[in-house]
Amino acid sequence: MAWQNLSFLTDAHSAEPLCDALMEQGALSASIEDADADTPDEQPQFGEPGSPTTPGWQRSRVLALCDADADVVQFLRQACAQLNLPQITEFTVSPVEEQNWVHMTQAQFEPIRISERLWIVPSWHDSPDPKAINLVLDPGMAFGTGSHPTTRLCLEWLEKTITPGCSLFDYGCGSGILAIAASKLGASEVCGLDIDPQAVEAARNNARQNDVIADFSHNSPPDHQKFDVVVANILSNPLRVLAPAICALVRPAGGQLALSGILREQAEEIIAVYAPWITLKVADVCEDWVCLSGRKI
């Protein structure tokens, strides 16, 4: 046995303080999950910056990883005492054996078919269809591996929209997957912006891996530079704040814009925010997410 895993139920108010207290007692890590995950009572958490929410799950499961020789029962007792909480008497302690974590992580990512001609393929996999347009990616810390509905929505929109020789700007590029896809679909100039240095580095690495020339940066392009296609797959609150900056990148008289990272119930508000610059409509829906698109007049 390499480690021990402590698991118990608590409420949303106590879960995070208990995680902190367990870490102070000596736990190697502590996390919170929805105790009702994968059941009809599951509670999705869609909070984002600037959006007031009540975070956490009323039935929360705390998981704490501890050394093999740690007294995890004493850890839990002391954590409850430190927080003046009633002692938790129902819990489980299970062994965690040493494993090939790299292999386990890689096993979670299989090739993803986006369309008849577009695939996302982890670098350690052979492509199921070598003749297809294959986006080779290493899932890392940057957002965008193709598994999320918003990424799929944007890729499907790009496949319908990109024309040979057009230019594209990816606002909030993450892993660079959308810009890389645009290049492989025929765009001649692709650029991307992200405020996260790790995302920019990941996007540059992924572009090299795909033999794509792309300009990924922390900085916005010059004011005079406009693009035939602009895509932004971020979250609704940043999309609201950044509306003037994003729309300014779209070429007048025909430039196209697609936005995602938007929940179905947020769509009408985002459409209204962008109305002074571009008339948007719902282009597609996947699960609870939408992709909005429009053309600049």
Score class of each variant (00 low, 15 high):
N205K: 15
M141N: 08
L193E: 01
E48N: 07
F91C: 00
L6D: 00
L83E: 00
L118P: 01
A243T: 12
L158F: 04
I180S: 02
Y171Q: 07
V212I: 10
A232Q: 08
L137G: 05
F216I: 03
I162W: 00
Q87N: 07
G186S: 12
E116N: 13
E90S: 14
P17S: 09
P17D: 04
G261P: 03
T105K: 10
P52E: 13
K281A: 14
P17R: 06
N206F: 01
G186F: 10
S167P: 10
C19S: 14
S236E: 02
T89G: 09
W57F: 04
P244H: 06
Q25E: 12
R117A: 11
L22M: 01
A258C: 15
T145E: 07
S29Y: 09
F169E: 00
H218S: 14
G174F: 04
N219V: 13
E156Y: 02
S127Y: 07
C166N: 06
F75R: 07
P149C: 03
L18D: 06
A2G: 10
V73A: 15
L6A: 03
L22H: 11
M1E: 08
Q78C: 12
F109D: 10
L185P: 07
Q108F: 15
V290Q: 01
G172W: 01
L193G: 00
L18E: 04
L263S: 07
T145Y: 05
A187I: 08
G254R: 05
I213F: 14
E42C: 09
I162M: 03
L259Y: 02
R152L: 04
S220H: 14
G176Q: 00
V62W: 05
N84D: 12
H224G: 09
A203S: 07
V73C: 12
L153Y: 01
D36H: 09
A283D: 12
A187Y: 04
L292N: 06
C166G: 04
L185A: 00
F109C: 04
C80H: 02
Q4S: 13
L118Y: 07
L118N: 05
D223N: 15
E24N: 11
A81F: 11
S29A: 15
